[in-house]
Amino acid sequence: MAKPTIAAKKPMTLELEAGDYFWCACGKSADQPFCDGSHKGTEFKPQKFTLEEKKKVTLCLCKHTQDVPFCDGSHAKL
């Protein structure tokens, strides 16, 4: 199994509107933390998540979280 590229060893906190989002799982997107299609040709697929209302979220950039797409502190162990 391939390992994702670590985009950063820290999370990104954003205030997002309600709606669907696609989190980059491969780490290669130039539009972190969101997918830009850079995973094509790899085993990685973007992870869809939906917010029901406007919300502040902390998204993983190290790509090692167990709580996809949210940061679980895994970056501290890298």
Rank of each mutant, 00 (worst) to 15 (best):
G19S: 02
G41F: 03
F49L: 07
K45P: 00
A25P: 04
L51A: 01
A18G: 03
D20T: 14
T42I: 05
L16S: 11
G19I: 10
C35Q: 04
W23F: 15
L14W: 04
F44I: 08
C35L: 11
A18P: 08
E17N: 14
K40Q: 12
L51G: 02
L16T: 06
S29I: 10
C24H: 08
Q32L: 11
Q47I: 02
K28N: 12
K45M: 12
K28D: 06
Y21W: 12
F49P: 03
G19H: 04
C35F: 07
C26N: 12
C26M: 10
C24P: 12
T50E: 00
E43F: 05
T13F: 07
D20H: 08
P33S: 08
K28E: 09
D36Q: 03
F44V: 05
Q32T: 12
T50A: 00
F34Q: 04
A18I: 02
D20F: 02
K45R: 15
L14M: 06
G19K: 06
A25W: 01
L16N: 06
T13R: 08
P46F: 07
G41V: 04
E17R: 09
G41I: 10
E15G: 00
L51I: 05
T42D: 05
A30H: 06
F22G: 01
T50G: 00
F22C: 02
G19L: 11
T13L: 02
Q32F: 08
F34K: 05
A18F: 03
Q47P: 00
K48Q: 14
S29E: 13
W23G: 14
G41W: 04
